[in-house]
Nucleic acid binder design. Structure first.
Lengths: 268, 268
DNA sequence: GGTGGACTCTCCCACCATGGGAGAGTCCAC
DNA sequence: GTGGACTCTCCCATGGTGGGAGAGTCCACC
């Protein structure tokens, strides 16, 4: 082992980092040189610091923020593993978001930006037996499944007949805490434990049909809202989805969903 | 259709964009309000602009840079599809990088940051018959396959016997244009078309064995370089990889690779 | 013991997209 | 006419890196 100290340039080459990076890491207290000349301000690194520097480079290549790297380096092995798993989860989430994005881009590139035929029409009044839940935008998928799984047995036990398709009711905006409902159209029935009834008013609506995975619904909503706002109309909550062909009946690519956005009527 | 103009706040709510965003898009010329009051500076948008604004919001959610969105909006449908496909490819690449990162993080979290046993030892001189190629870091995988696919038939045709394993020779740094070589140890042979011979000098080396996918090799190299530099030693190109268990013999998780970095000797 | 060239220092600015906040001005319904 | 909600412009911050200016330092070679 040599005790010679390394200048920043030499050390940078060893560790596959730029001089700028090393200076930055010094400034933020992530990796300080072992000695700093008081008069010249020159930074000197020891060979032993190469391990930390290489680790930093490695973790940066995995896209960990420097602040997290600092925590990880300072932490006990157990805590460190926990931090790394947290970052792994963060990346895994980005992967799944990116996958949805790739598919949407694919579709946009194929079909062009329009791609959806939006119809302005009228809907009859419908009476739904519904089950409600609160969730974040990311959880919608599971929550909808869960609600449907609660709704159908309750209807069965209560002896309430219903008419397909299943319906979903959603707020206009995907906020952090949103109220959703899954329902089935029915004429009879007067309420049961965990079951409510909701009457969807009839009237003007904008609608379109989306064929494909639910992850690509944003494309259809984009077309719908574009059509509505272009006409100077106002959408009205709740947005309605009718699951014409659901995940139980067909693969992802063949799901068919009717999207309906009610229009506020009687605007001055 | 109403001809009323919308203030920025109203328009922002319609399009799920923030006021700040709309102002920014105006400043950069991506989406200018249809009218700007000369005295007050107030921005007024038309309902018809909602389509563009929604499209911008949609494409931003897919992580397209604003500059690319501007291009896409201004381009003809054909060119637009081309741009979108380009962005799709960019995202797809990020996905595959992220997947490699996730697996490495997983491994780091399990095995801890050390995880590799680095040995300082001596290697005998070896004479290799090699095939060379130039590539970028991203192409290494395919290029190695390709080189191996060229090497073995040539050896066979020339009647040159060789001793497993296959070897790979790489530069110390993964640069944008790197020279790699794939070779097999052999005693006989005097050259053939597209075949060269290289003698790897014997001497001090640092080595370790990596078990798992090639995408996780950076972890092993990290440990190797850390060990080398910690001792104040200098690595010397080319880095050598011996493919003890290759992709033809076992699944990804069971690949076994010996990594050898020669050490510069006789340092003053 | 010079000297030249390579290195290093600190500072400031730029990227990208967005948000926060200050301080001033504007709109509109009551 | 007034209050409250809205809008304006400016500046700053984020995170990680790179570029460049202008000044200072190191060291090997002559």
């Amino acid at each position: 082992m040599q005790d010679e100290l390394l200048t920043i340039g030499r050390f940078a080459r060893l560790c596959r980092l730029s001089v700028k990076q090393l200076r930055h890491y010094d400034d933020m207290g992530l990796l300080a040189p072992i000695r700093v000349d008081a008069s010249s301000g020159y930074r000197y690194y020891a060979s032993e610091q190469a391990r930390d520097a290489l680790t930093i480079a490695l973790l940066r290549e995995m896209d960990l923020p420097l602040s997290v790297i600092a925590q990880a380096l300072a932490a006990e092995p157990e805590r460190r593993a926990q931090i790394l798993r947290g970052e792994r989860d963060r990346l895994a989430e980005r992967i799944s978001r990116d996958q949805a994005r790739v598919e949407m881009l694919e579709r946009l590139a194929e079909g062009g930006l329009p791609g959806y035929e939006v119809t302005m029409s009228r809907e009859p009044e419908r009476r739904l037996a519904v089950v409600r839940a609160a969730c974040t935008p990311a959880e919608i998928g599971e929550k909808v499944e869960e609600c449907a799984g609660r709704l159908l047995p309750v209807l069965g036990k209560a002896g309430i007949g219903w008419e397909p398709p299943l319906w979903g009711l959603y707020p206009l905006d995907l906020e952090e805490r949103m109220e959703i409902a899954i329902g089935a159209q029915t004429l009879q029935g007067e309420g049961a434990p965990g079951l409510e009834f909701e009457v969807l008013p009839g009237g003007s609506v904008a609608e379109t049909v989306h064929i494909g995975p639910y992850a690509q619904l944003p494309l259809a909503y984009n077309a719908l809202f574009a059509a509505i706002h272009e006409r100077g109309l106002r959408p009205q909550a709740p947005v309605r989805e009718a699951y014409l062909v659901g995940p139980a009946e067909a693969p992802q690519e063949e799901l068919m969903t009717r999207l309906i956005i009610p229009i506020q009527e009687g605007m001055a």
